[in-house]
């Protein structure tokens, strides 16, 4: 089976001062797959994610999205990328002075020329798609629970019908039931909209249920990219420890 590559990272090199985070890192992300980035603290998972959406820049290397080099892109071309990528930040990053509905409408206002009423309805559709009730749309972020904030942030990320969705630790800070529900939601959205999803997570449950492939960041590069089934048989010491440590053991028993 052949895959169409949506994002391809080549020879990425990232330094923070003297500290080297990525060295000759390569990674391909396929269309309509859910790819998770895992790795220990400080291995630059979030940094890598932020580099793919041009919030940070690597010192060297090439990042191609839909076969277009995005590093060194001019400002007006970056807009092309922004319309195709939805990003959900770890803490939601909802604008606190706006209601959920207004938050979701911001990208629509910026990138589409639909009438106000249509935008409002489309925003409402996204809010419901993210599993929130209508009444939640008129609330301010401060009035929402942690799980609802994640869903509202997801609705905003989906506002422009992006082709790639980036999720930074979607289930962090949620209880297992909420996290499980969010996992199901991500799967459903992927199935319905055929999105490519890139996520950073530490949640083993999510890794097993949601992802098609998992990229393991260690030793300053991607040491393995494969499905969880294959990775669980890996001999790499870090992967073994990660998946078969105390917290991973229940998956082998269950």
């Amino acid at each position: 089976m052949t895959y169409e590559t949506v994002i391809s990272l080549r020879n990425i090199k990232t330094h923070f001062g003297e500290h080297c985070v990525h060295q000759n890192l390569n990674l391909d992300i396929h269309r309509s797959e859910v790819l998770a980035l895992i790795g220990g603290s400080g291995t630059g998972k979030t940094t890598l994610l932020r580099e793919m959406i041009l919030l940070e820049y690597p010192q060297q290397g090439s990042i191609r999205v839909f076969d277009r080099e995005i590093l060194g892109m001019a400002e007006h071309q970056v807009r092309w990328l922004r319309e195709r990528c939805g990003v959900m930040f770890q803490n939601g990053a909802l604008f606190s002075s706006l209601t959920v509905l207004e938050n979701v409408m911001i990208p629509l206002h910026e990138h589409s020329q639909l009438s106000e009423k249509t935008m409002r309805e489309i925003a409402m559709l996204k809010i419901r798609l993210a599993g929130l009730e209508r009444t939640a749309a008129y609330k301010y972020p401060a009035q929402l629970s942690g799980g609802m904030i994640k869903r509202a942030a997801l609705a905003r990320a989906l506002a422009l019908d992006p082709e790639i969705l980036f999720l930074d630790e979607p289930s962090a800070g949620l209880d297992p039931i909420g996290a499980g529900a969010l996992d199901q939601l991500i799967l459903e959205i992927k199935r319905l909209l055929g999105l490519t999803i890139v996520l950073v997570t530490h949640d083993l449950d999510s890794l097993w249920t949601v992802t098609d492939r998992v990229a393991v960041l260690a030793e300053k590069k991607v040491v393995a990219v494969d499905s969880m089934q294959v990775l669980s048989g890996s001999q790499h010491p870090w992967i073994r420890q990660y998946l078969h440590g105390i917290r991973g053991i229940r998956f082998n028993e269950g």
């Binding site: 009423k117 309805e121 559709l125 419901r128 798609l129 209508r134 008129y138």
Partner: peptide, 18 residues
């Protein structure tokens, strides 16, 4: 997609602000 929109659009009350 149409089915998805259909399932996520509530009945009559679509236009009134609460």
């Amino acid at each position: 997609l149409l089915k998805l929109v259909h399932s996520k659009t509530p009945g009559q009350t679509s236009n009134n602000v609460p």
